[in-house]
């Protein structure tokens, strides 16, 4: 084996790492859960065995895209909700600019109606699920902000609370952005243009999306070009890990869950020579 064996990260691993590092940066302990524990083990293995880690440009770019989409889905919903409340609570008298007060008992259903109308415009299940989570975030934030208020609140205050949520989102963006810059030093971005024929083969053989085939294809091309052993680390069982054997048999690229990644790397480094091209690229 010529090159140093290494890990290539999938988008989900990179996102979890950003989340973990941002908490670490702020001195917070993130809620562990199974995903958090898997990531902690991975990071600890990487440090222990001094494993080089990379992510392809397609993975980094997908992560940026997700970050923008998530921010936009939260912020756009917040903006639309404010416009909706302003419209529903517009001043009744022409002599005042003050919006009608927001009743804690009945006007919460305005928010319910707003989200119901928003759902109706969506067709994709993922979009609906995304909006459900945004709704939960917004309503939870408002309940928290309003818990010590009386039965009515100035609608402008409700608007202000929603804007405060955006300020909090920006604080999180700031932390996440700083964490991302630190991560870029440890997990170097590899700009790899995936061969179209290879990508097509991966898509057809393993029923992968354009994006997944590009991420896996990048790792494979790096393995071949650098004559090294690459482990593609992911927690996407449905599209990647469940196809582990088939992918390895065809490409000699190992795809692994974080908890087994280091074991695969050590095992393969000892037992398998580095593959130089396969039938799929010919």
């Amino acid at each position: 084996m010529a090159g140093q064996a290494c890990f290539f990260f999938d988008v989900n691993i990179l996102l979890d790492t950003v989340f973990y590092k941002a908490h670490d940066l702020a001195g917070l302990r993130h809620e562990r859960g199974v995903r958090g524990e898997r990531l902690e083990k991975l990071l600890s293995d990487i440090e222990k065995y001094k494993i080089d880690c990379f992510a392809s440009s397609s993975v980094y770019s997908k992560l940026s895209e997700i970050v923008s989409e998530v921010n936009a889905s939260i912020a756009d919903s917040a903006r639309k909700l404010i416009c909706y409340l302003r419209e529903k609570k517009k001043p009744t008298s022409s002599s005042s600019n003050e919006l009608s007060p927001f009743s804690m008992k009945s006007d919460i259903f305005l928010i319910e109606k707003f989200f119901r109308d928003e759902f109706r415009q969506l067709s994709r299940e993922e979009e609906k699920e995304g909006l459900r989570r945004v709704e939960y975030l917004l309503v939870g934030h408002l309940e928290q902000a309003l818990k010590n208020h009386g039965e009515t609140v100035r609608t402008q205050e409700i608007v202000s609370f929603i804007e405060n949520l955006l300020v909090d989102i920006n604080k999180w963006s700031d932390a996440r952005n700083t964490a991302m810059l630190q991560i870029r030093q440890d997990i170097q971005e590899k700009t790899i243009v995936v061969d179209r024929g290879l990508q097509k083969t991966i898509k057809m053989e393993f029923f992968m999306s354009d994006e997944d085939s590009s991420h896996v294809g990048s790792a494979f091309q790096y393995q071949t070009k650098e004559n090294t052993m690459v482990i593609f680390v992911s927690i996407d069982y449905k599209h990647i890990i469940n196809w582990q054997e088939e992918i390895f048999s065809k490409l000699k690229l190992m795809c692994s869950d974080p908890i087994y990644a280091v074991h695969h790397l050590r095992h393969l480094s000892e037992t398998v020579g580095v593959p130089r091209g396969t039938s799929s690229t010919r």
Partner: peptide, 11 residues
Amino acid sequence: TIFKESIAQAW
């Protein structure tokens, strides 16, 4: 670097 954990989780 300060942020609300609940916001990060929801995000």
